[in-house]
Design a binder for these strands. Structure first.
Lengths: 204, 204
DNA sequence: GTTTAATTTAAACAAATGTTTAATTTGTTT
DNA sequence: AAACAAATTAAACATTTGTTTAAATTAAAC
């Protein structure tokens, strides 16, 4: 994958995130990437295949690093804390592609390379299950929490910050994008961690 | 607003949700609504104004019913439980428009009637604050939880089920759409309630 | 240095897009 | 019944769309 191809992919990522796949023309992408219009077909075949290739090249970024979470010396609580922070950081670093995936994945006619992404999603969901199991085996977590629901709370809370950026920046009085990212990786990650931890040790 | 106009709005809602605003042509809408193409311009002026009108006509559905949550006889815990269930049910009943708003609202060039929606969002956020305050005044909730973060967890967890419908239907082995809606209004709402309640009474 | 392949370009293509037009039908009012 | 307004239609409109073409340029191989 040469430099020009990467520029095209970066331009596509930026514009797809900002304006959506259907709201972005290949001419927009060509202009943003400073390449001739025909280069996109030349390298990627079509606009659809460009989206496909974009996902493929970014796919591995979404696999959560197992070792960071399951260090042998970690308690269940430490694994949980790591899980949440690694998860939020990983997703936030790939927020652009994740937002595109989230939006375009919900569109029926788009038959996104869903196999590979489903595989990764299930792998990541498995991590949540493993952390849960670790705490249950250690006798410190409540048994009855569904990993799917737990994962939805983690991912959903995070994604809410991606989908409502301007509203939340306003409400939280955050002016710069860097500050917003900092808020996500610190306060938001802490909130998610506290929330899930509370749920797991909560008995009613 | 006559019958034909409503059919157009319903068709637009359905298609915008399925294929996105830019992925839907006015011809698609006309066909779905069984009206002549020109009727859309005739009644709504333009495709953009159609979207605007769609939001306007559905706007009030998003205002959470205050009385259902703040019955005088309710304890803070009961208000919290009501809040979550009313919230989830309200949003689920308007999931289509909410998804459109969520997706299209993130697109920069689209200058959605954001004032009216921001107002409602803030009103609903205020409800969360009020429930929180009620519990704090009663001495039963933890003081340090941000209503914005709490709201993000509630909305985000719910929206995660809207944005990842097919994946979750697969993972949860839910086959029908009705069963999925039931799952959302029962198990999911309970999960969100348990989660938030746990956080609010949790002390570390 | 010549030949061959890869890259880059401007132009053209047909199809689809949102919107308008001008004519016709339908409904209402007098 | 006549006159008027509202609703409905098929056709046309100018752009924009994704993609292809054929020629020109650059790079690589021999």
């Amino acid at each position: 994958m040469n430099e020009k191809q990467q520029e095209i992919l970066n331009a596509a990522e930026k514009l797809f995130e900002e304006k959506g796949f259907d709201g972005t023309s290949v001419r927009d992408i060509a202009k943003e990437a400073n390449v001739n219009l025909a280069m996109i077909s030349y390298y990627f075949g079509s606009k659809d295949k460009l989206l496909e290739t974009l996902f493929e090249t970014r796919l591995d970024n979404f696999r959560i690093n197992y070792e960071l979470i399951f260090d042998k010396d970690f308690t269940a609580f430490e694994s949980l804390e790591k899980l949440v922070h690694v998860y939020v950081k990983t997703m936030n670093q790939n927020a652009g592609v994740y937002k595109i995936l989230s939006v375009e994945g919900g569109i029926k006619k788009r038959l996104i390379n869903s196999d590979s992404f489903t595989k990764i999603k299930k792998f990541n969901l498995e991590l949540v299950s493993k952390v849960l199991q670790k705490g249950i085996n250690a006798g410190v977590f409540n048994k009855t929490v569904s990993p799917v629901l737990l994962h939805s709370t983690m991912m959903g809370t995070f994604m809410n910050f991606q989908m409502n950026r301007s509203f939340l920046q306003n409400v939280l009085a955050i002016t710069s994008d860097e500050a917003y990212n900092q808020y996500i990786e610190n306060q938001l990650a802490n909130h998610i961690h506290r929330t899930i931890k509370a749920l797991l040790i909560y008995e009613d």
